[in-house]
Amino acid sequence: MKDNFQELVKKASKGDSNAFAELYSAIYKELYYYALTNLNSPDDAADAVQDAVLDAFMGIKNLKNEDAFKGWIIKILTAKIKKRQAEYVAQRENLTYVDAGDRYDDDEEKASLDIPYKESKYEEIELLEQLECLSENEKLCFSLNAIYGYRSEEIEKLTGINAATVRTHLARGKAKLRKLLDET
């Protein structure tokens, strides 16, 4: 299996898209779940995964350690996720630039202050919906731990977040989820 894996990486580094796709097929679902947890919609998550895959395909010839393919592509995806999150901040859904000609009466303003209803990206699976109560960093760390089973040192390499901080994020995130679980 390992030989096959390394053979596929070699082929992919020479531009063989089918070989790359075969490597990708072993991990693509987890890539998507990871992106979905940390972004606002399935579309954004799919965009991030596609962008990461493209970058990985273009750069696979630079991959020095073939065994590190999975971690390497997750690292690329993490950067894509953070880039999109930064765009969220800049375009934050509730950051509105009001035209001087606009008017707001009480009802409109009240409505705009309400939390806008978003279609559930988790198909209304309650336990997954609860993940939305975590902060961005908590979700990042939790999803890597829950989906891939990475530990804090591994998460540090993937995200750049200090391992001790990762442990804090994991502990807090799990505590929040536990509380929500108890309430339901």
Binding site: Y28, P42, Q50, V53
Partner: peptide, 27 residues
């Protein structure tokens, strides 16, 4: 959580076959 995630549909464009096609066009 992983089990719950696996209940979610994956967008078609992320299916390996479609990814292969995309990468092929890229090259």
């Amino acid at each position: 959580y992983l089990e719950l995630f696996e209940q979610l549909p994956i967008p078609k464009r992320l299916e390996p076959e479609n990814i292969a096609m995309m990468l092929s066009e890229a090259t």
